[in-house]
Amino acid sequence: MPQDTLDPRLLVLDPRDNVAVVRRRIEAGTAVAVPGATVTPTADIGLGHKLAVRAIGVGETILKYGAPIGRATSAIGVGEHVHVHNMESAYTRTHTLDEARARHGDHA
C-alpha cells in the first residue's frame, strides 16, 4: 500500500489540516490507511469524528477546514482518534455526558 494513501472512509477538508473526518463509520478491528501508517482502531469511530493524519505534539493547534479548532492536550500519533480525550478548546471547556455515562454504565 503506498505511503500517502488515505482510507476512502476518511476525508481531509483542507490541505493544511492535521485531522481527517470520518465519512463512513469505521468498525473496530478494521485496518485504516492514513499517510505513512496503517492503524487498527479498537473501538468503532462514528461519522463526523476525526483521526490524526499527522503526528501532533502536546499543545499543538488542531487544524480542520484549514482553521484552528483547539489544541492537543497530549501527544497524538498518526491515525489516532482526535476528540475530547486528547484536545481542548481555546475558549470554553467542552461539556460531555461521558462521566455520567461511566457512573451509570450507559452507552452513547
Binding site: 473526518v21 470520518v22 462514528g46 461519522l47 463526523g48 469524528h49 476525526k50 488542531i62 482553521a67 484552528p68 479548532i69 483547539g70 482526535v82 476528540h83 475530547v84 484536545m87 481542548e88 478548546s89 481555546a90 475558549y91 470554553t92 467542552t94 461539556h95 460531555t96 455526558l97 461521558d98 452513547a108
Partner: peptide, 12 residues
C-alpha cells in the same frame, strides 16, 4: 453533550 457524541470536540 450530544455535539461531542457526534464527533465535535470544541466550540471552535
Amino acid at each position: 453533550a450530544g455535539n461531542a457524541d457526534g464527533g465535535l470536540s470544541t466550540i471552535e
